[in-house]
């Protein structure tokens, strides 16, 4: 059993090494930036994959370009801007706030605000309606007495 676990763990480390071998970086910071960027950039061909996951030709080209730009010392924002210049906003998984995408940002907030507003207004209305007069108090006392008598008999 122990041997199997040991062998399995060996397999896992090999796959990790293979990943790192494929791309050579000057330092760890570059490797981290590369992996963040390839997860955040969307493959223009196979639409619901990022470029790290996709096997499409264009995804490979974008990965290579990201690698080259990262090694050039470009920051994350500079690389994203480079890609948006060429492939449009589509290529980034985080939509920017523009008139066309404003609804995405505003609608959830609007729904929450309106929902809470609705609840508050409803509760206020309900509490205003329920006034408690002396007659109500007298009626309540009478009903309680009646109930007690019924239970005794």
């Amino acid at each position: 059993m122990r041997l199997i676990i040991f062998l399995a763990s060996l397999l896992m480390t090999f796959s990790v090494f293979a990943q790192q071998d494929k791309y050579q970086f000057d330092n760890d910071e570059q490797a981290v930036r590369f992996s963040e960027l390839t997860k955040e950039l969307r493959c223009p061909k196979c639409q619901n994959q990022n470029i790290a996951d996709s096997d499409a030709v264009v995804a490979k080209d974008l990965r290579d370009k990201v690698l080259a730009l990262v090694k050039d010392g470009k920051t994350k924002d500079e690389v994203i801007e480079y890609m948006i210049d060429r492939y449009g906003y589509f290529v980034h998984y985080e939509p920017p706030v523009t008139p066309a995408t404003l609804v995405l940002w505003v609608l959830p907030v609007l729904i929450v605000v309106l929902g809470f507003g609705f609840i508050v207004i409803r509760q206020r209305k309900a509490s205003v309606k329920q006034t408690w007069t002396h007659e109500d108090e007298a009626l309540l006392a009478k009903l309680i007495k009646q109930n007690q008598r019924q239970e005794q008999s």
Binding site: A56, V57, V58, R86
Partner: peptide
């Protein structure tokens, strides 16, 4: 192709 934003 990459500079033009070609995807295929």
């Amino acid at each position: 192709a990459l500079d033009l934003g070609v995807s295929g």
